[in-house]
């Protein structure tokens, strides 16, 4: 057990918790009809969109052709079609993962 590593983990944990908790506690005082709240409501979906883009292309370095993106395209399209058809989350996501796995095999 390395005490320096444990201290570093503790420092990162404290900082991360502070960045999560302090804005959360400040946010509970927001007036839900006020402009700051409406701006945050606009920002929220954009954060999800950014997370989507980064999680899809995050490891894109080194890919040269369109075929390299086949797993992602197959996975996202499958999840989208099943979501539109059946609704819910679990089935479309599982199908998307299976399609992604198929894409990995075909690539």
């Amino acid at each position: 057990m390395d005490l320096n590593t444990i201290a570093l983990i503790g420092g990162i944990a404290l900082g991360t918790y502070g960045m999560r908790a302090l804005p959360m506690l400040w946010g509970r005082r927001l007036d839900t009809t006020g402009r700051p709240f409406r701006v945050l409501q606009t920002l929220g979906p954009m954060l999800i969109a950014a997370l989507l883009a980064v999680s899809v292309v995050g490891d894109g370095a080194g890919r040269s052709g369109w075929l390299d993106w086949l797993p992602e395209v197959l996975g996202l399209l499958t999840a989208l079609v099943l979501y539109r058809w059946r609704g819910g989350f679990v089935l479309p996501i599982l199908a998307g993962v299976l399609a992604y796995a198929l894409g990995l095999l075909l690539r």
């Binding site: 991360t16 509970r28 920002l43």
Partner: peptide, 17 residues
């Protein structure tokens, strides 16, 4: 590591209320 997590600053206020 903390810089990487700076985006978390925006999450709480969006849902806390």
């Amino acid at each position: 590591c903390l810089l990487l997590n700076a985006r978390h600053l925006l999450y709480g206020p969006s849902i806390a209320a």
